[in-house]
């Protein structure tokens, strides 16, 4: 069943690619976790918001002559504003409401963003330049800069976000607002703005994942749709409330699907997704709270 012609060079290239695509899943999964933790909303539009902002980056580079990195950082900022505005305008009226209503609202957002993308930029594929090109060779294994770059950028984003939540006053207030909104208000926290900031950071993370994956899959209106499915899986796999779990889950899922596709011949590309989800269900059967799901210690 296993492909026997095993080359270590091919193996390491596959691992690098798997981790890179896993990093993309990880940042989108983290965005989903962030929104779930702050506003208890499962945001089905996360992928389309990421695609939308990636198109903004494309406009900046292709139409306005910006180079990649300035466009990258400007897009992160624009995405933050877009995410925060989406929360204030569209999610806020349904805040802490019926979960089913909120699911419907985010599905509507999915359709709205997808429609906006096609309306503004058209249905065609666009060439999206990557920040990283070329390859390097280490011990006879040739690795694409793109793969290493994507993993590095994602991990850097995660670390920055972690530092923010762990060490800043606003980060602390955002966590407090997610845990106990009323108590936070009594401390003077403007809870609504904390929710908006949560959506803002999530949209920025999504933008990072979109800009990282666009050079690989090419920019098109449905670019993030299958990635969103993997990211949801990664988020649940890691325990929907655990940021670390989302990152680990994303990387593991990327690696797993890529390796399975490459080395188990009967799986190939077609069965990658079903097999990955079978594994996911198996994990959830053993650990219902997910890989790193929280066990809240409580003394009454």
């Amino acid at each position: 069943m296993l492909t026997l012609a095993f080359s270590s060079s091919h193996f390491f290239q596959t691992v690098a690619f798997g981790l890179a695509i896993g990093a993309v899943y990880a940042s989108l999964a983290l965005a989903i976790v962030l929104i779930y933790r702050t506003t208890h909303v499962v945001n089905f539009a996360q992928g389309e918001m990421a695609t939308f902002t990636t198109y903004i980056a494309w406009t900046l580079t292709a139409n306005h002559g910006w180079s990649f990195w300035p466009a990258f950082f400007a897009t992160i900022a624009i995405a933050f504003v877009l995410g925060a505005a989406t929360e204030r305008v569209i999610i806020r009226p349904f805040e802490r409401g019926d979960p089913l209503t909120l699911i419907l609202v985010t599905i509507a957002l999915f359709v709205i963003f997808n429609g906006l993308i096609q309306w503004i930029w058209g249905p065609d594929q666009k060439f999206f330049p990557g920040a990283f090109s070329g390859t390097f060779t280490i011990r006879g294994v040739t690795i694409a800069h793109q793969d290493v770059g994507v993993v590095a950028v994602t991990l850097a984003t995660v670390v920055v976000l972690w530092l923010f939540f762990r060490f800043t006053k606003m980060g602390l207030a955002m966590r407090a607002a997610a845990i106990a909104p009323v108590a936070s208000r009594l401390m003077g926290v403007r809870v609504g703005w904390m929710y908006a900031a949560g959506w803002g950071f999530a949209a920025s993370l999504g933008a990072v994942s979109g800009m990282m994956v666009a050079p690989v899959v090419q920019l098109n209106p449905s670019m993030m749709q299958s990635i969103l499915v993997y990211s949801f899986a990664a988020a649940v796999f890691g325990g929907i409330e655990s940021p670390l779990g989302a990152v680990v889950g994303g990387l593991a899922l990327g690696l797993l699907t890529t390796l399975l596709g490459a080395y188990v011949s009967w799986i190939g590309v077609d069965l990658q997704l079903p097999v990955a989800f079978t594994v996911l269900i198996a994990v959830l059967l053993i650990r219902p709270a997910g890989l790193l799901g929280r066990h809240v210690v409580k003394r009454v």
Binding site: I179, V182, A183, L186, M187, K298
Partner: peptide
């Protein structure tokens, strides 16, 4: 408030720091 209004999943010190928000 009634029920104390602590943040159960934040540390003791983080709770204290929230007082100075």
């Amino acid at each position: 408030p009634e029920g104390r209004g602590l943040f159960p999943e934040l540390t003791v010190w983080e709770n204290l720091r929230m007082g100075a928000y």
